[in-house]
Simulated scan of single mutants.
Amino acid sequence: MKRHLKRLAAPATWKIPRKGFKFIVKPSPGPHAQERCLPLLIVVRDVLGIAQYAREAKKAIKKGEILVDGVKRKDYKFPVGLMDIIEIPKLKKFYRVSIDHRGRITLIETSEKERNLKICKIRNKTYVKGGKIQLNLHDGRNIVVDKDIYEKNSSLLITVPDQKIKKYLPLKEGMTAFVLGGKYKGQVARISKIDGKEVTLKNEKNESFITPIDKIIVIGEAEPEIKVL
């Protein structure tokens, strides 16, 4: 497997300069598809501009100066994806991974109050020993729960890194969602109808549209639980 890819061939979702060094680092294998994540080095150097050169970014990462979801990540190729929290303690800066209206991965600055909060979409659930249920989340996490009250495609508001569930955000009419794909990607909208594998939503401009369930993530009830834009 190649360790690098050509900058011009990088996914269109990567919000990076297309001119410059010919090659760019690839993310390590992980829960996020390549077009849905960025290597930590790219986040530090190209997106946040904390370092000018790769060696500077690698040094900061290796020293544990960059936290992802409250954990020091020392692999400069570590894949950073949707809803992850990037924390830089030395600068007292906090960022959440989101997407913009063009579907590109972006980082939005957030508050210290939200640095331990994350919303995860339930991709699947399985039954494990002892009659318990394992929830498989979009970022590769697995959380074991006692009660079978959580449904696929709904979301959890959790704390990181301890993975404690603060709130269950079910997929149902009236809930607020963040759109991940299609014409209305990068928008916050209210779910007005659920029909099989599709949902109808209404955005802030009062426009109604239909999109597949796998193109949204529930982020709150009347209002988003966290900042995503």
Score class of each variant (00 low, 15 high):
residue 85 I to L: 08
residue 86 I to M: 05
residue 87 E to W: 08
residue 87 E to D: 11
residue 87 E to N: 07
residue 87 E to S: 10
residue 88 I to V: 13
residue 89 P to I: 01
residue 89 P to L: 00
residue 90 K to Q: 03
residue 90 K to G: 05
residue 90 K to Y: 15
residue 91 L to C: 07
residue 92 K to N: 07
residue 97 V to R: 10
residue 98 S to Q: 00
residue 98 S to G: 14
residue 98 S to C: 02
residue 99 I to A: 02
residue 100 D to Q: 11
residue 100 D to F: 01
residue 101 H to E: 15
residue 102 R to C: 03
residue 103 G to T: 03
residue 103 G to H: 01
residue 105 I to P: 15
residue 106 T to V: 15
residue 107 L to N: 06
residue 107 L to A: 02
residue 108 I to M: 08
residue 109 E to Q: 14
residue 109 E to K: 12
residue 111 S to V: 04
residue 113 K to Y: 00
residue 114 E to N: 09
residue 115 R to C: 12
residue 117 L to C: 03
residue 117 L to N: 10
residue 120 C to W: 14
residue 121 K to F: 07
residue 121 K to N: 11
residue 123 R to H: 13
residue 123 R to F: 12
residue 124 N to S: 15
residue 124 N to K: 12
residue 124 N to I: 15
residue 124 N to W: 03
residue 126 T to C: 08
residue 127 Y to M: 04
residue 127 Y to A: 01
residue 128 V to N: 10
residue 129 K to D: 03
residue 129 K to P: 12
residue 131 G to H: 05
residue 132 K to T: 00
residue 132 K to D: 00
residue 136 N to F: 01
residue 136 N to P: 00
residue 136 N to Q: 15
residue 137 L to P: 06
residue 138 H to R: 00
residue 139 D to E: 11
residue 139 D to T: 04
residue 140 G to Q: 03
residue 142 N to T: 10
residue 144 V to Q: 05
residue 145 V to M: 14
residue 146 D to H: 01
residue 147 K to H: 09
residue 148 D to P: 06
residue 148 D to S: 05
residue 150 Y to D: 11
residue 151 E to C: 05
residue 152 K to D: 02
residue 152 K to N: 13
residue 152 K to G: 03
residue 154 S to L: 14
residue 156 L to N: 08
residue 156 L to P: 07
residue 156 L to G: 09
residue 156 L to F: 08
residue 160 V to C: 15
residue 162 D to N: 15
residue 163 Q to Y: 09
residue 164 K to V: 10
residue 165 I to W: 14
residue 166 K to R: 10
residue 166 K to H: 01
residue 167 K to V: 10
residue 167 K to N: 04
residue 168 Y to T: 09
residue 169 L to F: 02
residue 170 P to V: 02
residue 172 K to H: 10
residue 173 E to D: 04
residue 176 T to R: 03
residue 177 A to W: 11
residue 183 K to N: 13
residue 183 K to T: 15
residue 184 Y to L: 12
residue 186 G to E: 13
residue 186 G to P: 12
residue 186 G to H: 13
residue 188 V to F: 05
residue 188 V to E: 09
residue 189 A to Q: 03
residue 192 S to Q: 02
residue 192 S to W: 13
residue 193 K to S: 12
residue 193 K to H: 05
residue 195 D to H: 10
residue 196 G to P: 15
residue 196 G to D: 09
residue 196 G to F: 09
residue 197 K to Y: 06
residue 199 V to M: 00
residue 199 V to H: 06
residue 203 N to H: 06
residue 203 N to V: 14
residue 204 E to Y: 14
residue 206 N to C: 12
residue 206 N to I: 07
residue 207 E to C: 01
residue 208 S to Q: 05
residue 210 I to V: 15
residue 210 I to F: 11
residue 210 I to P: 01
residue 211 T to S: 11
residue 212 P to W: 13
residue 214 D to R: 13
residue 215 K to C: 02
residue 215 K to F: 06
residue 215 K to V: 04
residue 216 I to T: 08
residue 216 I to R: 14
residue 216 I to C: 08
residue 218 V to R: 04
residue 219 I to C: 10
residue 219 I to T: 06
residue 220 G to K: 04
residue 221 E to M: 01
